[in-house]
Every structure is written in structure tokens, then in C-alpha cells.
């Protein structure tokens, strides 16, 4: 899933300065699962804004903070459901990932759409309260050659041909809190009896699949109408 975390409240308050009617929009998919921008978090953020504004004496009949949550902010059909609420607001605070914010900005022309989250990565919950990046979305998966552990996302230097000289006791040179991805790959390949595969050189990567000119697209000819 896509993992995100909420921006500091002070930053959000600065962002919405000058607007009177704020609609906080949660998203029911990835950011609900990672507890950053779901229905519950949208309610809490709206309350925090109301409290902050009340402290400043800003709340009144013409000032309003409300919240709503859609199933997925990155699909048109779900956004249509909130058209009226969006129309009634001065600014929308999206608690979706970067795709959600942008989908709303395209859907609701002329409306200010602001991000309440920092979108972090594609990953998973490691344990309660801890999420880890697993995939960099590089567009050219090498997991078949690296024992199912991604060196692009998980090695600090995205190395393709083994650990650098900074790998020690299973940890990355950058921090003792970071597992060396290549130690993990080595251990996994060893347990799979495939160590000899790590002797082959992986050629330079085709990064055009990762960051090409403009946004990358996936086209499925069989599905186009």
C-alpha cells in the first residue's frame, strides 16, 4: 500500500490561513490502512482546526470546518459523490496521498485543493506503529534476481551488484537502524541455495522506466475503449 503521514498541524494551519470554509476529505483506501488520512484521522484533523480557530476567535457563522471521507480519492466516481460539499467550501484539505490530491485538483476546477499529508512510499506495516518502504516503483522489477528483496528501495545506494564496503553486522553504513538490504539478499539467496546467482553482474539499469519524460503511463490496449 501507499504509506503517508500527516503534516505537522502548524504547517496545515498556515496552509489554510485566509480561507473560511474548509472541507477536510479523508480517503478510505491506503491512507486509512496506514492510519494517516482515513475517516477517523479526517475527523480528528477537522476538530484540531476548529479548536485552533476557536482559540483565535475565528469561528463564527461564516466560518466552517467540516469533514467527509470517500472510498478512494484517486477515482473519479468516488469524487463525484462529494461535488456539492466541495462546491460549498473555500478550500479542500485532502488527506489522500499525492494521487488523491491531484485527482481532486483535476476534478474540481477552480477549487483550492491542499495536501494534509506527506506521501512517503509503497510499503507495509512492519509491526504496530511502524511502516517500512518496500518498493520504489522503478518500473523494471529485479526481485527475481535478488531473492524477493528490493535493492532499489531498500539499499541506501540502490546498488545492483552486492553490498558496498559499509555493510557491517547486517547493518547499513548510514545508520544502525537500517538493515543492509544486501545482507538480507545474501541470507535469503543462501537459504534458497541460490548464492551462485549473486556472482553474475547485473547490467546498468534502464532508469527511463523509473523516471521518464513526464508522468509514466500504463496502457492496456486490451482494455481501451
Amino acid at each position: 500500500m501507499i504509506v503517508a503521514e500527516q503534516k505537522p498541524v502548524a504547517e496545515i494551519l498556515r496552509m489554510i490561513e485566509g480561507y473560511r470554509k474548509i472541507l477536510v476529505v479523508g480517503c478510505g483506501t491506503c491512507v486509512t490502512v496506514c492510519m494517516a488520512g482515513g475517516e477517523k484521522e479526517a475527523g480528528i484533523l477537522a476538530s484540531l482546526i476548529r479548536m485552533a480557530w476557536a482559540r483565535e476567535g475565528r469561528l463564527g457563522p461564516l466560518i466552517d470546518v467540516s469533514e467527509t471521507t470517500v472510498e478512494r480519492q484517486c477515482e473519479w466516481e468516488f469524487l463525484q459523490e462529494i461535488s456539492e460539499k466541495v462546491a460549498a467550501s473555500d478550500a479542500v484539505l485532502s488527506m489522500g496521498c499525492g494521487a488523491g490530491v491531484q485527482a481532486m485538483a483535476r476534478m474540481f476546477e477552480g477549487k483550492v485543493i491542499l495536501p494534509a499529508l506527506n506521501t512517503k512510499f509503497i510499503g507495509m506495516p512492519e509491526r504496530q506503529g511502524l511502516w517500512t518502504e518496500l518498493c520504489a516503483g522503478c518500473g523494471d522489477c529485479v526481485l527475481d534476481r535478488t531473492g524477493g528483496i528490493c535493492p532499489i528501495a531498500r539499499c541506501s545506494k540502490s546498488l545492483l551488484n552486492g553490498p558496498c564496503g559499509g555493510s557491517q553486522n547486517g547493518k547499513c553504513e548510514v545508520s544502525k537502524d537500517i538493515d543492509c538490504a544486501w545482507q538480507l539478499i545474501f541470507d535469503r539467496m543462501k537459504s534458497l541455495g541460490r548464492l551462485e546467482a549473486l556472482g553474475a553482474m547485473l547490467p546498468p539499469k534502464d532508469w527511463s522506466k523509473n523516471r521518464d519524460g513526464g508522468p509514466r503511463k500504463v496502457v492496456r490496449e486490451d482494455m481501451l475503449l
Binding site: 553490498p163 557491517q168 553486522n169 556472482g199
Partner: peptide, 14 residues
């Protein structure tokens, strides 16, 4: 002196 020690010579060979 880095780890995995066993892999260091493989990397040299590469």
C-alpha cells in the same frame, strides 16, 4: 572487513 564476509570475495571476483 565488511559483511557478509563470505560474499566479499564473490564481490571481488565480480
Amino acid at each position: 572487513f565488511a559483511d557478509p564476509f563470505e560474499y566479499r570475495v564473490v564481490r571481488l571476483a565480480k
